[in-house]
Write a protein that binds this DNA or RNA. Structure first.
Lengths: 225, 225
DNA sequence: TTTAGTAAGATAGTATTACTATCACAAATA
DNA sequence: TATTTGTGATAGTAATACTATCTTACTAAA
């Protein structure tokens, strides 16, 4: 028997569902590899097609443009992160322990997940660090938001916000603190590796220090009294 | 007598110094307006040239490409912010008061500065919120960093980090907290206006609440004991 | 006053990007 | 058997991201 993790994707993100064909899966897999290798700006459907061994027109049958591919990939990632959180905090009742686990999951390099065949989660994690915010830092953010493109991100943020409230019902900024944790887990990682003087972890390049920083930030903020 | 604020710019950012000619100043002014209006992705030198009433080739004599223009604008902005901080905390000795002033300057809408003729600081502030991180979230970040393109940003971060240490010499993450303040001052603003469920200020759209959130975050983090 | 250099306008041209359209073929399905 | 569906192959277009050249106007030094 084969276990397969399925992340439900917003239908408006694609023209044809990439999960339902070999070509579609190839598009996802090779998109991740190409964006990771050359960055989102240099990523084109022509290069992607050459990489896969198909034609540009073939890609356009699945995705309208490369922006939709990026939103698809980041959505998938946040859905997957939420699954990981559910999986790893399944039997945990203490919200403080939960929150620690979440911070660790967000800020630590991802182990490749055998349950998801054609997605390399480790590469995807790195893409989301560098390219993720470009999915919403656009002029079309309001249209995209109306189409629910950012629902997985918002769901995750709401989930974390609720756990923060479980820790301290009186804390006044649960959602902003949640989005701060999510963004900073990635930004401090990017800074550590690329602009190290913006962090306190530059020399060691040790992800566990990002975890320590975020834990310090969060638990001092929500401490009662 | 005419007072003019001059921000020193990295020479490697441009081919010809835009501050030293009318065309150059027009390029800066209209770049800000166009990027604000259509976003950085839709910004092209051709449209810019049409807007100014010059030719594409004319723009290329000043800037190699639009990425350099973005880095130029963000560098200018961070230099200007550091000047504002110096100006507004000139006679302040208490580092806590200083830090509060800085948070307010970073998170609050900018008043147009008469000292800088051709730069609309208010528009530029909004651009840096939406497009600023695209200046470094690239594959070329290491090359750009070697050319010192991000020095103004790093200087600002170091300045804030040092004030944090003045507040509490034992705090372990001054630089990471500083970059968190800078980034979150902008991100919470973007979220508030575009993806409000990621914040706790969605309904009111009140910038002063971002200030309150950041003050809470920072002063709980660096509180002694 | 001539001369030489520089900034900017005018025009042209190229490679790549971001698409759209059409036709043909093979496999699956009704 | 007829029909729909997915894919490949090919072509074409408008816009983007440049580079090159030629000319003119101004300025500053000889």
């Amino acid at each position: 028997m084969k276990l397969q993790l399925q992340i439900t994707m917003n239908e408006a993100l694609f023209i044809r569902n990439p999960e339902q064909s070999d070509l579609g899966k190839n598009i996802i897999q090779h998109s991740i590899e190409l964006i990771h290798k050359n960055g989102f700006e240099a990523f084109t459907f022509k290069k992607l097609a050459e990489d896969i061994g198909t034609t540009e027109a073939g890609i356009y049958r699945y995705f309208e443009n490369k922006h939709k591919v990026l939103v698809y990939l980041t959505s998938w990632y946040w859905g997957w992160v939420e699954f990981q959180i559910g999986y790893h905090t399944n039997n945990v009742t203490d919200p403080i322990v939960k929150l620690k686990k979440i911070i660790k999951l967000l800020a630590t390099t991802v182990k490749d997940d055998v349950l998801t065949g054609y997605v390399n989660e480790n590469l995807l994690h790195q893409i989301v660090i560098t390219e993720g915010s470009k999915a919403y830092l656009t002029k079309q953010v309001n249209e995209d938001n109306k189409l629910q493109f950012f629902k997985p991100y918002k769901d995750l943020c709401a989930l974390i916000g609720n756990i923060i409230l479980e820790c301290n019902i009186k804390y006044r900024y649960p959602k902003s603190l949640a989005s701060t944790i999510i963004e900073m887990a990635h930004y401090q990682n990017f800074f550590m590796n690329n602009l190290p003087s913006l962090t306190d972890f530059g020399k060691s390049k040790d992800e566990s220090k990002i975890v320590s920083f975020l834990e310090d930030l969060v638990f001092r903020s929500i401490k009662k009294g």
